[in-house]
């Protein structure tokens, strides 16, 4: 393993710069997500974590640098093209379609897919992962509780059969018990073979399920190491783990 992170990457960012408004939000980010693993990105509010995900997805395009997905440059593509390659994001704040039913929200997750039978099977799969969504399938997304919306957001992302799942603050605003459930599910999804890039403020939780971790500060990656090592790191402990 080299300095930058694990080898054999499904996603690789090389010196990516992004401007958000007039702010130079990402100042040369480099990181790698291994196929099959969970990598987390931790850091304080406003460090540029969400911008990193939005840049990967093409919503906030990179001004400079290179993003490779499965060896293919994607930094010049539009969001829908990137999505069609199999990168799926669960954005911060869940972003449920409030006036569509749970079922319709899930169908939108499978928007790019044409295989009806496969979609039906995956629908059953996410229903078994989150049984409450099956109960609520005809309810409008906007009327679900926060936890249910988070499950729906993750389920919706899974409906696209992602080759890489990006999660932005899945624990935000949820009760501790629910957070634990969500993180269990994330591990379960990963065990089924989907690599995961996890952005979190809840550093303890995130590092405990990840193989590798990155620490971000004001647009730069300041630390990169195995998650277990970061958990022991004095600096990280002081700044992000509240010890």
């Amino acid at each position: 393993m080299n300095e930058n992170g694990p080898a054999k990457a499904v996603l690789q960012l090389n010196e990516v710069h992004t401007y958000y408004g007039r702010i130079h939000a990402l100042k040369g980010i480099s990181c790698r997500i291994p196929s099959g693993g969970i990598v987390c990105l931790i850091g304080a509010n406003g460090a540029g974590k969400s911008t990193t995900l939005m840049t990967i997805c093409g919503v906030q395009p990179a001004a400079k640098g290179e993003i490779l997905f499965e060896g293919r440059p994607i930094h010049r593509m539009r969001p829908e093209q990137i999505a069609s390659l199999g990168i799926s994001q669960v954005p911060e704040g869940r972003q449920i379609f409030p006036l569509m039913t749970t079922l319709e929200n899930l169908e939108m997750g499978a928007y790019l897919r044409k295989d009806r039978d496969g979609i039906k099977r995956d629908l059953e799969k996410v229903y078994s992962l989150f049984p409450v969504l099956k109960e609520r399938r005809n309810q409008l997304g906007g009327t679900l509780s926060g936890g249910e919306q988070q499950m729906l957001a993750i389920a919706r992302a899974l409906m696209s059969r992602p080759r890489l799942l990006l999660l932005d603050e899945p624990s935000l605003g949820l009760a501790p018990l629910l957070v634990e459930r969500i993180f269990d599910t994330i591990q379960e999804i990963n065990r089924a073979g989907t690599p995961i890039f996890l952005v979190e403020q809840n550093a303890q939780m995130a590092l405990s399920i990840s193989g590798w971790g990155y620490v971000m500060e004001t647009g730069r990656i300041v630390l990169a190491d195995r998650a277990r090592a970061l958990l022991e790191d004095e600096q990280v402990k002081k700044a992000y783990l509240g010890e």
Binding site: P79, S84, S88, Q89, P91, Y111, R156
Partner: peptide, 8 residues
């Protein structure tokens, strides 16, 4: 934005 992320 979300619609774009889903490939629409």
């Amino acid at each position: 934005r979300m619609a774009g992320l889903l490939g629409i």
